[in-house]
Nucleic acid binder design. Structure first.
Lengths: 157, 157
DNA sequence: TTATATAGGACTATACTGGTCTTAATTAAT
DNA sequence: ATTAATTAAGACCAGTATAGTCCTATATAA
């Protein structure tokens, strides 16, 4: 089960593309669809949602398209997640005392609560602007995934 | 969308109960169902899965039931998650370079990868034994959720 | 006027999730 | 031996989420 749903992932891409084009005019759904390899229909749907939520504006007609309203530094991945997919929660029971019938359970949820907070904060603090910077600093080679593999070996050390 | 599915949460409870009874003989599904407020049928199903995965043993007949094979210090929440629900992955694309058509995306996934690792490690390092200890240290009052509520108010401060 | 865009409702196939029902097989105690 | 308590396990189901398409309408630059 994916925490970040596929649609949300698509939206990340679309928004990152718009971030790179921030201040350079509108980008059409068709272009975004092609460049980010997301089906045209779905691209439209996702852009509409992002539009309705006030992150992007649209201009209709030829030469129309979408562009960011806010600066990429003011939009986090958590924002996008919130728009596209149902909210991420770590577990049902964290929502309230009602679902947690026994005290014995609370030690579980107390710990899970910390994890939930961490995830929240992580996504809230990761802005589109930061992602652009990471990409730029990251050299021109395509070896990011190799780097990621190293990350995984060293995890928690 | 919950990262820890409800069934997994149930399994956490059942396993914590068995942990508390570790070394004290078998506990029947009926008892576990009552004590942890999980439907009897579902309790049976979950216990069967945990049994098949080698975390608990069963004895049939009257006075039968289930008991842990391993020590609670050797079973993590990640273990239980793995048995009960489909594996947690942060996003489809993290699975491989194949799903990641554009380099521009990698800066997203590089960061998400870190988050995925954190979640993994968190759950892998949280053992049933630790949860018992947390519970015991946590005083005898029932106010854990009040504490949790405070947590939620103060988060990110 | 036309071609290029966005806007948005309706619909669908598939899969997952939580959960139940039913029928067996095992075994301690009487 | 019989009975009652218990695990074992397959089949089934309703509800919902997910990803995605289809179709029609509307706006607008050229």
């Amino acid at each position: 089960m994916e925490i970040i749903r596929r649609k949300t992932d698509y939206a990340f891409r679309l928004m990152l593309n718009l971030s790179i084009n921030y201040g350079k005019g509108a980008v059409s759904a068709r272009t975004l669809s092609n460049e980010e390899q997301v089906s045209y229909q779905l691209t439209c749907k996702l852009l509409q949602k992002l539009h309705d939520s006030g992150y992007i504006k649209s201009s209709m007609g030829p030469k129309g398209g979408y562009f960011l309203i806010k600066s990429p530094s003011q939009i986090s991945l958590a924002d996008i997640v919130r728009v596209i997919q149902s909210p991420i929660s770590l577990s049902d029971c964290l929502l309230g005392i009602n679902n947690c019938p026994k005290k014995s359970i609370c030690s579980i949820h107390k710990e899970l609560y910390k994890l939930g907070n961490y995830i929240d904060n992580f996504l809230s603090n990761l802005t589109l602007n930061q992602l652009i910077n990471i990409r730029n600093n990251d050299s021109e080679n395509n070896a990011n995934f190799l780097i990621n593999k190293e990350f995984s070996k060293n995890k928690l050390n």
